[in-house]
Design a protein around this nucleic acid. Sequence first.
DNA 1: TTTATAAGTGTAAAAAAAACACTTATTTTG
DNA 2: CAAAATAAGTGTTTTTTTTACACTTATAAA
Lengths: 230, 230
Amino acid sequence: MSHTFYDGQEKLFVATDCIIFGFDDNTIKLLLFERKVDPLAGRWSLIGSFVQENEGTKHAAARVLEEYTGLENVYMEELGCFGEVDRDPGARVLSIAYSALIRIGEYDVDLVERHGAKWFDYDQIPALVLDHNDMVDLAIQKLRRKAKYQPLGFELLPEKFTIPQLQILYECIYQRPLDKRNFRRKILSMNILEKLDEKDKLGSKKGAFLYKFDRDKYHSLAQKGILFEI
Amino acid sequence: MSHTFYDGQEKLFVATDCIIFGFDDNTIKLLLFERKVDPLAGRWSLIGSFVQENEGTKHAAARVLEEYTGLENVYMEELGCFGEVDRDPGARVLSIAYSALIRIGEYDVDLVERHGAKWFDYDQIPALVLDHNDMVDLAIQKLRRKAKYQPLGFELLPEKFTIPQLQILYECIYQRPLDKRNFRRKILSMNILEKLDEKDKLGSKKGAFLYKFDRDKYHSLAQKGILFEI
DNA sequence: TTTATAAGTGTAAAAAAAACACTTATTTTG
DNA sequence: CAAAATAAGTGTTTTTTTTACACTTATAAA
C-alpha cells in the first residue's frame, strides 16, 4: 500500500483530559492539578496527556490517571470530544475528555501531593485552563443525569458502605433531600445489595449495617431488562 | 513561544463518521455508502471525512453530510470517539462518530444517488468497513435511550405530521406497540404541539389533523424543569 | 441512669401508567 | 346512492408507582 488516500491528509495533536470525581465529607469533589507546562503553567487544570501512536484514547486517560493517583481499574467513561479550532492557544489540540469515579480512600496520597493536586468541592471549582471548566460542567451534568439510571454511586463509595451513606451521596448528586424510608425501600427492592453482618459505628452510636454492591446480580438483572433506577 | 511542550509530540489522523437516520415507510432507516477509496473500496460504509486543521470536528461531520445529501442545519449529536489502535488497517486513524437525524423527504436525491448511497432498514444493516457496525449499533442504542427523554422524533418527521405518524415512529424506535389513546393523551398533555387546521388525507379516508412541534414552547418548558417524556 | 444521636421501620394518600371498546368521518365499491 | 371498509378520534376504570409522614431502637457520652 504505497499510495493510499491517507497520504497528504493532515494530522492533529490529540490529547485526553480526565475529570476525577470523589466523594468525601458528604460532598462530591473534583481533583485538580497545577499545570506544569507552558502555556498557562501554574494555573489549575485537569490532568491530561497526549495520545500516543500506539495506544487507545481511553488507555491514554487511564495511563495518566494512574501516573497521578496510583489507581488502576478505575471506572472511566468518555465525556466527549472537545475539538474547537482555537480551544488551545498553543496549538491545534483536540481533546477527548473522560470522567473518572474514584474511591477517595484508595488513592496514593503522597503521589497526588507531589503532583500539586488539590480536591475542590464540585460547586466551587476555580477558573481552569483552556476549556476545562466546560468539561467539568458537562461532566457534572452528565453524572447527575446518569446516576439515576446506572449504578455509578457505588464507584464513589468504599466497597462496604451503609444505606445512609449511599443516601447522602445521592442527595449530593441530585442536590435535594431524599426521604430515608422511601430511599431505603427503593434501593433494597432492587436486590442488588448484599447485607453484611458488620456495622459501621463511626457515623452513629447505634451503628448502621454495612452493605456491598453485588455487581453480578446487577448485571444479570440488567440483562433481563430490569433496570436500575434511584 | 519557540519551544513548547507540543514540540516532539505525535500527531494522529482524525476523521469523523456520520450515522444518518431517516424515517420512511414506517421504518427507521440508515443511509450507507459504497466506499470509494482503498483500503476496502467497494464495501458498504458510513460517510466520513478527515478533520482539517482549521475546522471543528462537528464541522467536519456536517461538511461531509452536506456534501453527500445537500442538507444543512441537520440535527447532529456526538456519539463518541472510536480510538482503538488497530481499528483502521491502513493507518492509525481516530474517528469521532456523529449521529444525524434527517427528514427523509428533504435530501437531494440525485446527489445521494451519485454518491452510491442506499437506505437500509435499521435491523438489516450489512457488514460495514472497519468498526462502522459498532458505531451503528451504539447509535441505535443511544437513539432508543434518548428518544424517551428528548424530542428527537420531530427531527425525523416532516415539519407537519399527524399524531398517528408520530406514534408509529415511536413504535419503531421502541420496537413495541403503544396504546393510541394513552399516546395521544401523553404527547398532547405536554403542550409542545401546535394543532393546525389542515388534515393529512393520505393515511386514511377520514384524514388526520396535522401538528407542528413548537420548539420555543419546548425550550421554555425545559428551562422551567418540565421534562419531555414519551 | 439519663440524655443525645442517628438508624431503622409501615401505612395511607396522591399521582401516574396501563388496560380497554366504541363512534365518527370519509372514500371506495357494488 | 347505499353499504362496506378504513383509520381517526375519544373516556373511564384499574393497577402501579410515588410521595408524604412520625415513632421506636440501639448505643455512646454525659
